[in-house]
């Protein structure tokens, strides 16, 4: 397994952990709104923003720790033309997923009074786009293309 492939697994894992943490944390800190307000009227409050900051910190920490571990056991950090081409293909798929998310979020923003749905949907699609990017790159790396 190449350095690039290991790096992609680390990023996919880190993103998954951070997204899982954020999803559960928002459900926990937002339970009062969930019980009292209709979904379209919900707003992003300070505890949710704090959870977002923690999730970003979790993502960065896992990414740094994972890459440190990889470098510890694999000194080859070089990237070549095939890796760059695979990265472009992954980014193309991620871009399509993100574009779908942007338009769905815009639609939700128009029909909502609060900003919760719009924000969370857009964030979810960004995470999905990133994870699609990593997954496509891993698949292409494993295929040997």
């Amino acid at each position: 397994m190449s350095f690039r492939e290991k790096s992609l697994w680390v990023m996919l894992f880190a993103m998954g952990i951070a997204a899982f943490f954020y999803g559960h944390a928002v459900a926990y800190v937002g339970h009062v709104q969930f019980e009292t307000l209709p979904f379209r009227a919900m707003t992003v409050d300070a505890p949710m923003v704090a959870m977002f900051h923690i999730a970003v910190a979790v993502l960065v920490a896992f990414a740094i720790l994972g890459h440190l571990l990889i470098v510890l056991f694999d000194q080859r950090t070089d990237e070549d033309e095939r890796d760059r081409l695979i990265a472009l293909k992954g980014a193309r798929v991620g871009g399509v997923v993100l574009a779908i998310g942007v338009f769905l979020s815009l639609w939700l923003a128009v029909v909502s009074t609060g900003n919760f749905g719009f924000t969370q949907l857009l964030l979810s699609f960004w995470v999905l786009a990133q994870m699609s990017d990593y997954a496509v790159q891993l698949w292409l790396q494993r295929q040997g293309r």
Binding site: S2, D80, E81, R82, D83, G144
Partner: peptide, 16 residues
Amino acid sequence: VGITRQTVNAIEANKY
């Protein structure tokens, strides 16, 4: 050549 072993393997296998 300055590429990765995985790329050499992909070239040999006519996948890249």
